[in-house]
Design a protein around this nucleic acid. Sequence first.
DNA 1: GTGAAAGCGCTAACAG
DNA 2: CTGTTAGCGCTTTCAC
Lengths: 335, 335
Amino acid sequence: MNKRPATLKDVAAAAGVSTSTVSMILNRRSQFKPEVEARVREAILALNYRQNPGARSMVTGLFGSIGLVVLDIRNPHFTNVVHGASIKAQAYGYNLIVVDLKEDISHATQTVDNLARRVDGLILSLRLTEEARDLPRELGKPAVLFGQTLQGHFQDLQTPSIQIRGREASMLLGRHILETGRRRIMYVGYSRSIWNADRVGALREIAGDAEVMEMSVDTQTMEAGEAIAASIVYGPQKVDAIVCYNDVIAIGLLHGLCDLGVRVPEDISIAGFDNIAVSRYVTPSLTTVDMRSEDLGSRSLERLHLAIESRDPGPTAVLLEPRLMVRASTQGSAK
Amino acid sequence: MNKRPATLKDVAAAAGVSTSTVSMILNRRSQFKPEVEARVREAILALNYRQNPGARSMVTGLFGSIGLVVLDIRNPHFTNVVHGASIKAQAYGYNLIVVDLKEDISHATQTVDNLARRVDGLILSLRLTEEARDLPRELGKPAVLFGQTLQGHFQDLQTPSIQIRGREASMLLGRHILETGRRRIMYVGYSRSIWNADRVGALREIAGDAEVMEMSVDTQTMEAGEAIAASIVYGPQKVDAIVCYNDVIAIGLLHGLCDLGVRVPEDISIAGFDNIAVSRYVTPSLTTVDMRSEDLGSRSLERLHLAIESRDPGPTAVLLEPRLMVRASTQGSAK
DNA sequence: GTGAAAGCGCTAACAG
DNA sequence: CTGTTAGCGCTTTCAC
């Protein structure tokens, strides 16, 4: 209808008061003559007035929004992070601006830089470039980093973080697999992730005399997992258990194995990380480690809220405990 | 570092020119003395200056962002819509602001209203309230609606839309199921969707002498699908095929059926809608109808871009054709 | 070509 | 308690 939305000035004029009166009534709770306030509210309704958040931001420096940068929204792990953050954002009254990098971190710095100027704070994946991770601090914007711990790295971050203990996750899973009598474990990694080394490293550490082999895929898709099945089955090395970088890859690989006539878990057992919803619904249901995706998102948002409100940041790192989810895909002993 | 980022004024001062000169150099390509331009660019670099998008928006009325409202980001269908839109947004240089309603459309109007003041255009699900759908038009903001056709409704929308032919989708699937000899079809709907009626209606239309029964769940999760399995298996009616509102529900239900010892597809065949990535990877792989999720997102963005740029809206409706994806879950004849 | 000045819509002192 | 006023950082006529 109105091509030009009503402004504060219009409301003030209509109510016969000054703009500052309207502004105060809208924002602070300072008392006004009931009569004046009523007139103002009436005018607001009549003109269908809405604050212009941009103009407001310019003077207050506040945006009422939080930016969340994820690596790949199609990965249910990140979707769950978004969901967790979104719930808390709603609770605190923030807008959540989700930006998907589509696994391409080469523009991460630019993305963060761009986003930082429109939000009160940022939630970033730990897997971004260091430059991108540090940018908020340089810009003086509150930020929270989320992701997995990384041995020898994220302990003394300059930015608060919510981290899931990655090596513990690997160990939980590794221990479980060893307990089922498997001795020839193939780790299928994701070449572009900084967490690969920790995953397989922790696995090796507790493997003892069991052998840990390694392969990797370079896209995080079920297709990639499926495609690698043949090289494992027909490869030179005998394998009786497979640990995948995440559930997405594991589900693809599981399917690929079944197509090749491999019995899971009898011939080869298989597991992933993340505990995405569908893992419980594939056949056999997939053993995995719950990486607390949703908690990662909600805790990050809460932590950021604190930093924005109370100015009480302190680059503390919260460590979340992974949870082993044993399901059919690793059930039963080998042989 | 600098708590206060450099402003245009700072750059102008450093370069010894006026703010308007800097602004012009930054935006338009109007020619300047190479010497002046060089000095300005140097100052920009030296001060690490970035435009303040908020201030710019206030005067130009442009935001460089597009808002996308989805019903449930955890549903891979919507994730794919986001992904499709995100790719095009990046191509056109827009920021994509994704807002997740978490299946609660009661605040849709408020969400849209709020978002509309921060973006150049909106992409909304057709499943929002009519009030929310119409709001952009009242606000004079370009918008594109996406989703499924709805018999007797979305033909003369006031807003451009990208629609997937829902009844055709049902018919494709129904026809396929009938061809496999099934005659007692259970439709498991999602009670909160406006598209339920079309789905089951179209199914009934082509069912002929086959019987179409109906049940429904009220959350769109695999858990809900799983939970309803028993009522179908132990219910009073014999069923030889199941069509679910979407793949998420179907995957849960498939799992539930298997747990109850039902053989799929021998005893009961099952199918869903959406063609989410994982459908191919469950066991048996799930027959579904590709609802062109990613195309819905990318086409919407393209259409919106047109409306924003060329001022060439026109409330046209683009109809996308669904694609039947026959997989193992409906393979083979009944009995 | 370049600068001066007038706002965009709003908030925040500061007066009255 | 309410109005006046001065900007927030940027773009954009309009003169020079």
